Computed example of a mutant assay.
Amino acid sequence: MVKAKVFVYQRRFDGWPKEGDLKLVEEELPPVKNGEFLAEAVYLSVDPYSRVFSSRLPLGAPFLGYQIAKVLESKNPKFPIGRHVFGYFGWRTHTVVKDEPSGMFPPPVLVPEWKDVPLSYFLGVLGMTGNTAYFGVLEICQPKKGDVVLVSAAAGGVGSVAGQIFKIKGCTVIGLVGTEEKGKWLVNELGFDNFINYKTADLDKALSEVAPKGIDCYFDTVGGHITNTVLSHMNEFGRIGICGTISSANEDNETSAPFNLSHIVGKQIKMEGFTVLRWPNRQSEGMVQNHKWIQEGRLKTRETVTEGFENAFKAFLDLFLGNNIGKAVVEI
């Protein structure tokens, strides 16, 4: 009988996630039945959306999360032993998997056997993180050559990829970050044109200095007061794509910084929220294109890797403390 280590959702988050909100337990797994396979986690994805979606998760359930896992036993010919899969299995070391969707999340898929990239990339730049950036930029923001673009949380997994795709499309790109180290990484290694450290700068004044002619497109993952400030700097017919509200993820009242609707109306701004799940049949498109850009040297990435399944909660908390650069993953 196979035993799995599982982080279960023990207590509702109240503000910042705390020790004890998740509980590490062991459980015995049932035998693998026809059509199923046994997967052993290799890498675990750590994402801000897990905090937001946790309100929908019943207490006692495995905590939310994607992983890259290796097939150890299989009674499903689509998932042969030894192959790696990408799936929404939650925070657990072993899973008996059915080839079907899990709630709103798609069914598991085989990871491509591309030898020129690390396996962990399929949780980041070649996974849903990279696809969030890919579709958010191209489908929602629809950049035009010469656009001035602002990207929030620009040193994170999604923002860092989004900014580079905007550059590929001929835009001037400014990144919002929380440290000088992150900003220098964006400019010196990823090719961003400028950055603003929102923790030390007067954001309103800084935006006037680095984007004196205004902002055409804003790729937003934070929301809150930052987004409200950015609105006054948007140009007429500007586009805003919103895929996260991490600034208010740990607050009970997410309306603490209401948008100035007069800017949206007066400037005729298009403001649209999205998740990557909107394009279920096009995920391979984004993966293949991002991979091509990596091969061409036009797209770079960075990971913050936490060792050990038991340390997943620390990696999760570090997201909200701003301690990671690039995509956050746990190596089991």
Rank of each mutant, 00 (worst) to 15 (best):
V2F: 12
A4Y: 00
V6L: 06
V6M: 03
K18N: 03
K23Q: 15
L24F: 01
E36T: 02
L38D: 05
E40Y: 00
V42A: 10
Y43P: 00
S45D: 07
V46L: 08
Y49S: 12
V52Q: 13
F53H: 13
R56D: 08
G60C: 13
L64E: 09
Q67D: 15
Q67E: 14
V71A: 03
V71P: 01
L72I: 12
E73Y: 05
K78C: 02
G82D: 12
Y88D: 08
W91S: 01
R92Y: 01
F105N: 11
F105K: 09
F105H: 10
P107G: 03
P108G: 09
P112D: 09
P112C: 11
P118W: 08
L119P: 05
L119W: 09
S120Q: 15
Y121Q: 14
L123W: 04
G124E: 11
V125R: 05
V125S: 11
M128K: 10
M128T: 13
T129Y: 11
N131T: 07
V137L: 10
E139N: 14
E139L: 05
G146A: 10
L150W: 01
A154E: 11
G159F: 06
Q164G: 07
G170R: 05
I174V: 15
V177L: 02
G178C: 08
G183R: 03
K184R: 15
W185A: 13
N188V: 10
G191S: 09
F192T: 04
D193P: 01
N194G: 06
N194K: 13
I196M: 02
K199E: 02
D202L: 10
D204K: 14
A206W: 08
S208Q: 12
D216G: 07
Y218I: 03
F219Q: 08
V222H: 04
V222F: 03
H225V: 14
N228A: 11
T229I: 15
T229L: 13
S247H: 03
S247W: 01
A249R: 00
N250T: 14
T255E: 13
S256M: 10
V265C: 09
G273L: 12
F274S: 04
L277D: 00
R282C: 00
Q283L: 13
G286L: 04
V288W: 14
Q289V: 12
Q289C: 04
N290E: 07
W293C: 01
R298N: 12
L299D: 02
E307S: 15
G308T: 12
K327F: 04
V330M: 04
